[in-house]
Write a protein that binds this DNA or RNA. Structure first.
Lengths: 211, 211
DNA sequence: CCAAAAGTGTTGGGGCTACACCCATGT
DNA sequence: ACATGGGTGTAGCCCCAACACTTTTGG
């Protein structure tokens, strides 16, 4: 029994997942998702959280169970069952553990070819994410604590894979009453400063359908 | 590693799940979901399907993975991990296996108190079902091959737990183009005969949001 | 003729989409 | 001055909800 974790982050306007470079066979030298065997007495959720904490410095990560993958064709070594999780972070806040045993963790685009059946896991996670940003506030887990409206919109656009109308997006999102101004402005660009926003609640919110 | 299966059916205008009466400790004599250990070389999905085929005469059941439950507090015998599935059938088409080893399978309301953490599993399945009838055609798995519009509507009402407007429901559902008249009429009541319908496609259909 | 479910249209309001211009700052 | 993103309002359309009566059969 194992876990695999899809940790999402948005890097350079692209949706990416945390990968490692395998140090042993099978798939030696290939990219895969981080994961591993459950320790004794550990839940799959704890195991997934532990794996992430080993690769990154993150604490308090939002994580949710995705799906359980099994079947004898997914790992050449034998018959493993993997409980997959997905998690989110703000790319800028990540500090990687660079010790050799961490196997060079890095964020790569979701289309990157991975070993095992990990592309299947990533595809499933991406489709879940696409659905879920439309009726929950999970996007806050990808954003820094303070952000501008344009950044919020761009994150939606990256995940959904389509351009959104600026005025309509602002109206719709504002009506959800999820975010508020911090009072700070983002200056430094050669343009008018932007208001900064933060999410009101740190909790998970499920909306009754909207997009 | 085990599976537990939530088999739904609508019986007497109530949403019910298949239960068994346990023949051994723990929870001897209590109701629980059917389930069991995976056989060697078997996937969790195959295991869940096999369990259902043992209790009922059903073949070709629609089944989907729900969630994986783990933690040391879910079974007093130790640390089990259970991959839960949900499935659907038309209550009228069920023939139970009544041999003693089948442990008296029967359909009971979803609110029935069950052993282990099985109420948690049922609650999760019910919420998934409630969501899913709003953007897929899974309801066909609960209906007989031919049905009337009123029956279809009543199934929605039972699952959603609310009354729906007859005219609006018919308009909305018809616009989805999922069902067609069979040409048969249901007679025998002391009222005008009703047109009978069937689903066009036997396949799973995912709609782009509607209810 | 009465009871019971079958079947059918219209209207008003709210929310979505589409669309273009001025503002504040840095260089 | 100009380039860049920041920020704002409206009008039309479509979809949804609300709502009541006639039809067809059995008893």
């Amino acid at each position: 029994l194992t876990t695999d974790v899809v940790l999402f982050a948005i890097k350079d306007s692209e949706l990416c997942v945390l990968t490692i470079t395998r140090a042993t066979e099978p798939y030696l030298g290939k990219y895969t998702l981080p994961g591993g065997f459950l320790h004794a007495g550990e839940t799959s959720r704890n195991s997934a959280t532990r794996v992430l904490q080993q690769k990154t410095s993150l604490d308090n990560i939002y994580i949710e169970q995705l799906f359980t993958f099994d079947g004898s064709d997914r790992d050449p070594r034998g018959d493993f069952v993997s409980v997959a999780y997905m998690a989110f972070c703000d790319y800028k806040s990540i500090v990687f553990d660079i010790s050799p045993k961490s196997q060079n963790p890095e964020f790569l685009p979701t289309e990157t070819k991975l070993g095992f059946d990990h592309n299947e896991i990533v595809d499933y996670a991406v489709s879940r994410l696409k659905n879920k940003i439309e009726y929950t506030n999970i996007i806050k887990n990808l954003l820094p604590a303070e952000f501008t409206f344009l950044q919020l919109q761009q994150y939606y656009e990256v995940i959904l894979g389509e351009k959104l109308d600026k005025r309509n997006f602002r109206k719709k999102f504002m009506s959800l009453d999820l975010i508020e101004k911090t009072g700070n402005m983002l200056t430094g660009g050669k343009q008018r400063p932007a208001e900064m926003y933060k999410f009101r609640s740190q909790d998970f919110v499920q909306l009754r359908r909207w997009f």
